[in-house]
Simulated scan of single mutants.
Amino acid sequence: MKRKLAFDVAALLLALVVSGSSAHEAARPAPITIHSVSVNLPSSAATFPPGPGSDIAAKCLICHSAGMVLRQPALSQAAWKAEINKMRTVYGAPIDETEVDTLTVYMTKVNADQQSH
């Protein structure tokens, strides 16, 4: 009886080891291939006009040309604030929370000035 019990325990341990390794194998993610991508962004000679907040707006140039930002349709201050916060939270724009209000006022003014030209 002791021999049968020892055999059953050994078989159970072997089954656990085998099933554990196959479960571990199944959990391993498939290998991925990494390759380089080249992106050509449109150039723009436009610059942000001077004023309180232009230094913060310069951070937008990491992803956008000044011309692209300056050609946006007229947006309200609330809409600019929402856009700026989306860029921060969704896309990781390096704009500190303490800079949002200054940039919002700046972009609202610059945007309105561009619409009047």
Rank of each mutant, 00 (worst) to 15 (best):
L75Y: 11
V37G: 04
S65K: 07
I56S: 14
V69T: 07
I95E: 06
I84A: 01
A66K: 11
A66C: 07
I34C: 05
S76I: 01
H35Q: 04
M68P: 02
Q77D: 00
Q72W: 07
R71C: 15
A79V: 05
T89F: 03
Y91S: 13
M87L: 00
I34P: 01
A45V: 14
G92W: 00
R71M: 15
N85W: 02
S44T: 10
S38W: 01
I62Y: 05
Q72P: 04
P73R: 09
Y91F: 12
V39A: 15
S38T: 10
A74H: 06
S43A: 05
V39F: 13
L70D: 01
L70M: 06
N85S: 07
I34K: 09
C63A: 05
D96Y: 03
F48C: 14
T33E: 03
I56E: 12
D55A: 09
A74L: 09
A58I: 06
H64R: 07
A82V: 02
I56W: 09
L61P: 03
S65T: 14
V37E: 10
V37S: 09
P49V: 14
K59R: 15
G67P: 11
A58R: 13
I32Q: 07
A74M: 08
A58M: 08
P73H: 03
S36A: 13
P49Y: 10
I32M: 01
A57P: 03
S54F: 06
I56Q: 12
M68N: 08
P52F: 00
R88F: 01
R71N: 14
D96V: 05
A78R: 13
G92E: 04
K81L: 04
V90P: 03
G51E: 15
G92S: 02
M68V: 02
I95W: 01
W80N: 05
A78T: 09
I95H: 02
I32H: 02
C63S: 05
A46R: 12
T89M: 09
S44N: 10
C63W: 03
I56K: 13
D55G: 14
I56C: 13
A66N: 05
P50I: 12
L41G: 10
S43C: 02
V37H: 02
S65Q: 07
T89K: 12
S38D: 06
P42G: 11
S38R: 08
L61S: 13
A93S: 03
D55Q: 12
V90L: 11
I84P: 04
P94I: 15
C60A: 04
A78W: 01
V39Y: 10
P49R: 14
A57G: 01
V90C: 04
L61G: 12
S36N: 12
R88P: 03
K59S: 14
C63V: 10
A74W: 00
S36Q: 11
P94S: 12
V90F: 05
A58S: 08
G67F: 09
N85M: 12
R71T: 15
H35W: 00
D96C: 05
G67D: 08
W80V: 08
S44K: 14
L75D: 03
P42Y: 03
K59A: 13
A57M: 07
S43V: 04
G53P: 15
T47Y: 02
C63G: 08
P49Q: 13
M87G: 05
N40S: 15
A46W: 02
D55R: 11
K59W: 07
K81I: 04
S65I: 08
P52G: 13
P94V: 13
T47C: 02
S54K: 14
S76P: 06
P94W: 11
E83M: 04
Q72E: 10
